[in-house]
Design a protein around this nucleic acid. Structure first.
Lengths: 343, 343
DNA sequence: TGTTAGCACTCTTTCCTATCGAGTGCTAAC
DNA sequence: GTTAGCACTCGATAGGAAAGAGTGCTAACA
């Protein structure tokens, strides 16, 4: 059996309707809902076929049909081809520029949750090019030195070092020179044992200080790895009865709080380079067990200088894919603009 | 009518039992539960009295009794006098020292949630003494300058400034001198218009740079105000049926996510200086409307140098106050130790 | 051959009712 | 003051009937 045009139309109608109502949809509804002018009986026949093909399923014998994961998948795929919508609504809200990346991300994720009525997440951009741009040691207190490390992309890292009180200003100046001449412009990955040994040797009796600075540099990478994720709108799941029962809700909330799980999602999204930057995981397709009853739409955004992050929208399988994809696309453009303007 | 010793004992028994089961407790249960050797009928009489006094109430005519807010309050008050327990369990977990304050707080709040099975929050310490300790401008790029501001308590603030490319190293040095001589040791609150004007005048043509630095300083205070709050264990609320229905759960989760609300709780806790540092808000007593069906136990912790923060545990009204207070007390000691050791 | 009307059948949902049982309040006796 | 006893209340639970939505199948139709 093949999936002809009419079957596709009926399937689409079923899904659309189900997205709206969340209830299984019957043949009579479709008979009226579409412009095919077919009786419910005919629809019933077609539905039986669609079920056999695996695109829809019946919760129980005398209920209407609901889309299967396979059905959603077809729907989403055809939709992604067709659409390139826009949602301008949130532009204004975003335009209240925020100075700090963190605040900006928090705002984006909140606006997105409010706009879509789904749960949302965003991962802070992961810096890919990691050259050291600038290092400075400054005395703050008698026995305390502040190390400031700036990495390409203007990621700034502060670290307080305890030093012997006898350390003179002169020495400090020397150490500054030493560090900057050897490390400026060097990608963090290239700081190997040889370089470290050379630095320590030149630092002489102050090798401990150099060691601490290098530890701080190493931290920059470490922080990269457990990258920051912000979430919002977790409570939106209560708007969808199929997700709101205690067990599921608890799992979902928990996954949202323990951002560890979401991280796998981020990784997965960043790894996949194939398409437009937008990916849709339906039900079991997504890598997180706890949200297997949900669908996830993710987008990769890229700011200047190879800084990449992920935005995700998590909702019921009957989420309004159309709108969500549109919103994400528009949002990505705006993030682009926003960043370019500021830069 | 007075609250004699026997009534107190009965009330305590009712509350204890209700804390365990979460079910209304009947007269027969109490008759067996206590060592008073009274029949259920007698208990019934006493319960009628207790109800009249407002310490307990009946969900409906033929049900047992549950404690009222007033009842809990009495229970908690007498308990706080008596107890000074310890919970050593989480010591080990905390002893895996974390370098960064943020990571430490996140860990504390997580450990606490795991230990208690309630939702938990912690606010990052708010610095009270705000003297500027150190300011430094460093050139990072041709047109970019990094301003590092260190405030007493070693709070570090970075800010990137855009400057005209013509700015010479010499000028930079002068500006550094200027800022440090005038601002070092000055409490941020005391930077008034007069001081600002004087600084700008001395900076001459570079007053714009000084202005930007001062803006960054102002940010330190601003950040103080919307202080950071970390939460954990929100999903624990699903363990208590009386909180787990959709409406309530949604409100709770939402309040937990929107940390704004929790902030009022922090403020309130910090404001109250009266007692041991531990406060208990029962039901409507707490300032957040969304969690009016919960109880909140808060503690103020104080690290060195007048840095104060708040820990909170949010659970059902029938939370195990005894254990929670004990846990919090022990935790506070450990935080003290931890910080002292590191310092 | 595809479409449709009709009908019996299935299964959930809803509502009603009866029953159960926990717990109370009251009375009378100890 | 304490207790036993009893009638009463009211939620919870279970069973069953009726309603309703929707199906699958058959037979008729164009």
């Amino acid at each position: 059996m093949q999936l002809d045009e009419r079957k596709k139309k009926i399937l689409q109608a079923i899904i659309r309707n189900y997205l709206e109502t969340g209830e299984p949809v019957g043949s009579r509804t479709i008979s009226k809902y579409t412009d095919l002018n077919l009786s419910s009986a005919t629809i019933r026949n077609e539905m039986a076929d669609l079920e056999e093909l695996g695109y829809i399923l019946q919760p129980h014998t005398s209920a209407g049909r609901i889309p299967s994961d396979k059905g959603y998948r077809l729907y989403v795929d055809t939709m992604l081809e067709e659409k390139g919508r826009e949602v301008e609504e949130m532009k204004e809200m975003l335009l209240e520029k925020e100075d700090k990346m963190e605040a900006l991300l928090k705002q984006v994720v909140r606006v997105l949750a409010q706009n879509t009525n789904y749960a949302t997440m965003i991962s802070a951009p992961r810096i890919q090019r990691n050259k050291i741009k600038f290092i400075q040691l400054s005395r703050v207190d008698r026995g305390q030195i502040l190390a400031v490390i700036v990495v390409e992309g203007n990621v700034i890292k502060n670290h307080m070092l305890e030093v012997p009180e006898g350390l003179s200003d002169e020495t400090l100046l020397k150490l500054n020179m030493l560090l900057n001449t050897h490390l400026n412009g060097v990608p963090i990955e290239e700081i190997n044992l040889g370089l470290i040994a050379a630095l320590k040797q030149q630092a002489g009796s102050h090798e401990a200080v150099v060691g601490q600075v290098l530890d701080a540099v190493a931290d920059v990478i470490k922080e990269e790895e457990d990258l920051e994720i912000y979430t919002s709108g977790a409570n939106n799941i209560f708007k969808y009865p199929e997700l709101a029962d205690n067990t599921k809700a608890s799992e979902l909330i928990s996954a949202f709080e323990e951002k560890r799980a979401l991280n796998t999602l981020v990784q997965e999204t960043l790894a996949d380079e194939s398409n437009t930057g937008i990916q849709v995981y339906i039900g079991e397709e997504n890598p997180i067990q706890a949200i297997k009853d949900c669908s996830v739409v993710t987008a990769t955004y890229e700011l200047d200088e190879g800084m990449k992050g992920t935005i995700g929208i998590i909702g019921p399988k009957r989420m309004d894919y159309d709108k969500v994809v549109g919103t994400l696309k528009s949002l990505m453009h705006q993030l682009d603009d926003l960043y370019k303007k500021r830069d």
